[in-house]
Design a protein around this nucleic acid. Structure first.
Lengths: 121, 121, 121, 121
DNA sequence: GTGGTCTAGACCACA
DNA sequence: GTGGTCTAGACCACA
């Protein structure tokens, strides 16, 4: 379900966070579905349980999961997450477009690149 | 010319690097124009000279400036930099569009957002 | 494992970089094998940790090692490194041969020297 | 006669030294021919006279030129220089070959590369 | 324990 | 004056 790349420069906990975000956003983990327990996942990935703990805490802080003490961690409501996520993506998109404009690219160039540039692989 | 945000989580040297990249790409620092000396900038920003030194070394490694020992640091040729930079921007643009698609946004939505979204401020 | 020559005009961090490059290329440090920690090596060589840190950062930038935060530094894949390295060696070889030709040495002289000159110690 | 590349990372005096070495070795400056005066060359290259002075001192130290006080600097005997230079080149050649061998290249590979690899452009 | 960043301050090479 | 290297020592993030 999840693979960690030790050669990735990002810290391990961050990789775990991002993987779960994607799984939840894409619906691979359904709303209210239980995530693996901290201990089990730690064993599966050969990772320190503290690291998983930290990743789950971060996911909860960002609203992607909720914790029920004594029961485990569960995926949050996908629809609400996606709304927030779309906003985030659009913000980043606008920032990059501003950069593109500032080095002299035209609106047309940018849009053509989006359309033809393998953006839908 | 440059402002450092101590509350920013990114390291100081990285902020300095990014600020100068922008100034050079936008032409605010002309090709072959001298950058502030390591010591002067360190005083101006109330930052340790070592940190500025590191930022300048990184800028040189990435080709944004060149160093003449005993003389100072100078902005590289803008046109060459921009070519490489455009490629980088387009790559990031494609990545973000893939993300957008993966959460169910349509090509039309994305393009409309670029057009109307204040991308041309 | 590593010896630093303080009389060498090259900076210490560069000597450390070159030594580790050789150890990794020759297989003396196996792929994914852990390098000494920054602090341990600093103590062993009686060198400031910052200097080791810089050497390791450079090795990572050049692809010879990868860093896992909180765990340590590990040797990269030897085979991939050697491919790039061979190219580098051949380039240097050609440069030197050009020099040799330019002061009047013949192809035969050069090759004889390679063969007999202790190149295979 | 001589061009300085400010974007070259080597110090200016070293570039001057190398340029004159080549000119003398190739015979472009004949034995006992006078080199430009420190002041003239400094003006021609828009360089600090101290830097030229240092380059000439280094050339004298290495035996490429000799100084006659009140008269100027003159190229040394080419034949003697070339002998020493050949030795130097051969030494470097052997070192590189050892490197090549140590990463698994064969004698044949090396020689083929010298022959065919554009070494005589 | 391990690496990453930063300050303070020194000394050297180069122009 | 200018950049480059290094030491000493601190504090933080990560595992």
């Amino acid at each position: 379900m999840i693979l960690i790349d030790l050669k990735d420069s990002r810290p391990i906990y961050e990789q775990v966070v991002d993987k779960f975000k994607m799984l939840i956003l894409k619906g691979a983990i359904a709303p209210d579905e239980k995530l693996p327990s901290v201990r089990n996942l730690a064993v599966d990935l050969s990772i320190n349980p503290n690291t998983i703990q930290r990743a789950y805490a971060e996911l909860e802080r960002q609203g992607y999961i909720y914790t029920v003490k004594g029961k485990g961690n569960f995926a949050a409501d996908r629809d609400k997450l996606i709304d927030g996520y779309k906003e985030e993506i659009l913000k980043q998109l606008r920032e990059i477009c501003q950069l593109a404009i500032s080095v002299g690219m035209t609106e047309k160039e940018i849009i053509n690149n989006i359309k033809g540039g393998g953006a839908y692989d």
